[in-house]
Amino acid sequence: MTLDRDEGSKRIPLAAAGAAVACLLALAVVFTKDLIGKGPGRDDIPKLSPEYADPSTVRKVRTEMTFDGAPCQACHEGAEPLQGNPHEKGIFHEHIELKHGRNQHCFNCHHRMQPADFSNFDGSPIKLDNIQLLCAKCHGTIYRDWGLGIHGRRSGFWDTAKGPLKTQVCIACHNPHWPIFKPLKAAPPPHINPRTRAKGGKTAGAENHGGLD
């Protein structure tokens, strides 16, 4: 082997030279045509359903005491306490499911004489507008927490100097006849890694490590 200073005179096999150049030109084509692409496509994430961000309460609070549109007084004239077995008087309130602890009787809460109102300890009526006072008869600690803002929902302005604070009464969330909070359907789980379609087995923190699956 001798070192040849006149490099231009060195010869390269045409096939090798052609192959090298062709490789680079092929790479150029791959890059410009984006043949490899940008990896797997994104998951299709369904559009955000408005109900997921709906701030309304789970129940509607009625503004007046009616039954099928008729006022209570239409049937319960209120002059005398009801007598006898209510089931013998026809089918009216049968759809009400009463699962409220040990309360078995309508008049534990409803007023005997004034059917549109509710009954306090001493028999005095509690109006629908003050329904929390009825619940407070048994749930005193929750009522205290509710007054302090610890229990229940609040919305509007925390700084009441700047705007109104809106609180919700007990029956906006709890069905008074069956007060335990009912299960809801959960909004969709997060798409932790947008580039994988694998499901299941993900645990918290997996998003920091590209998913565990």
Partner: peptide, 29 residues
């Protein structure tokens, strides 16, 4: 007068450089 299936090293380097520049430009496009 040697066989025609060989090219000079200078010509090869020129072609190689040109195609490498093309590929780089494509990659950065």
């Amino acid at each position: 007068g040697e066989p025609a299936n060989e090219i000079s090293r200078r010509a090869f380097l020129a072609a190689l450089t040109t195609s490498a520049v093309t590929a780089t430009a494509a990659a950065l496009s």
